[in-house]
Nucleic acid binder design. Structure first.
Lengths: 219, 219
DNA sequence: ACTTTAAATAAGTTTCTTCTAAAAAATATG
DNA sequence: CATATTTTTTAGAAGAAACTTATTTAAAGT
């Protein structure tokens, strides 16, 4: 139950999210997400391994141990509840909540999260639709798939946005591409990797890249 | 308007509070409050001086420059609003709010403070009675004096607690020694440096040390 | 005025996080 | 299959923030 630094927490949280997405976290992706140099990641991961938080297979990737996963889930819980605090209670914009929460999350003691959760009315997800782990470390994930998977004519409800960079979120909101919105695929043109969709009666164009980070539930 | 580290913010905030209390901040006191070694303070203060944030007269003490004071007031504002957030919105205990806020304060962007302030109902003071600087950097201080100054038979209303260590606050609350309480001095015995007081109809004993950090307004 | 004591400083380490540049391994290409 | 390219790792160094110890300096007491 040793206390870890903010940096270590940030690494573990990111590894967890990458595992969910790609089964394994590669150092190159970690470096990109964390915005640090490649060598830095290798060095830091080596230390994480020494602390028994991850297992690193060189040239393959990184996986959390049970111990690491436990901490990562705690951090993710703090992160997503912080986001809710910011948007629901403090009126912070959807697009900024993520980056502020990345700092706050390391300075909220676990034991006040229960209070926070209650005040917020026990939200199931963060403002971007991603599930909030329970205090026991469980995640209840609503089934969904990337909007990109849908075919012409398919209709779905947006469940979550899986990347939370400020610029991306600002852009998405302009087109009402937010959890709960109804989306219909009008056209998929692979030539220029664009998707034409209708969101709540307004038409919009999406790059495949963006369509891949929006998860929907088909209806 | 260069951005400073959490450590620097913490130093500036502490120097401001010591200035308020003693006119000047001595390195030894700084070291004690910040819980770091004496040498560390000298080193750090030297850096602060290079950045034009303080003026250090060796063997005399440290004073904030205008630039340093401006930052310190911002930090203090963030600190005290964070404390209110913790106690009023998140149900955190009076005695723990201070130490948690010491971390949070460095990760709250200034521009969301206005929202926070509004949500909280524009409180004038922190939960311990100390004034919250305005967004313009002004402090409106209610006049008060240490309880220690009062003589036998004097009566006052507690205005603020000027030190916010967890153990101290836990102890004070047991005796209802909190802002707003009515205190009457029953006896002052200088032999053993104790003060007998009546707080809201209950009797209690206070060391001179504690009586010096409780500020009251005579009635 | 001299000595003692307390405070301030200087110098050398340690830990943490990061970087860059060079070497090694894995993957892709002709 | 051998070479080229990309990706990953290793190694060395740097900056920030802290500590300890030893020395210097100022203030206080006799």
């Amino acid at each position: 139950m040793d206390k870890v630094s903010s940096t270590v927490e940030e690494y573990l949280k990111t590894i967890l999210r990458l595992e969910e997405k790609f089964e394994i976290a590669k150092t190159s992706v970690l470096a990109e997400v964390l915005k640090v140099a490649l060598g830095t990641v290798t060095n830091t991961v080596e230390k994480l391994e020494k602390q028994g938080l991850v297992i690193h297979e060189p040239y393959k990737g990184i996986k959390l141990t049970e111990k690491g996963r436990k901490i990562a889930l705690e951090v993710l819980r703090r992160h997503r509840l912080s986001e809710r605090l910011l948007t629901d209670l403090l009126g912070v914009d959807w697009s900024r909540a993520h980056e502020i929460a990345c700092k706050l999350e390391h300075n909220l003691p676990n034991d006040i999260l229960k209070n926070l959760e209650k005040v917020l009315g026990h939200p199931k997800t963060c403002p971007h639709g991603n599930p909030i782990p329970t205090s026991c470390g469980e995640i209840f994930e609503e089934s969904s798939e990337p909007l990109l998977n849908l075919k012409q004519g398919d209709v779905g409800i947006i469940v979550k946005i899986t990347e939370e960079e400020k610029e991306i979120l600002e852009h998405l909101r302009k087109f009402k591409l937010i959890p709960g919105s109804l989306v219909k695929v009008l056209e998929k043109t692979s030539v220029d990797s664009l998707m034409k969709v209708k969101v709540e009666d307004v038409e919009a164009f999406l790059s495949f890249r963006l369509a891949s980070i929006i998860n929907v539930k088909k209806v």
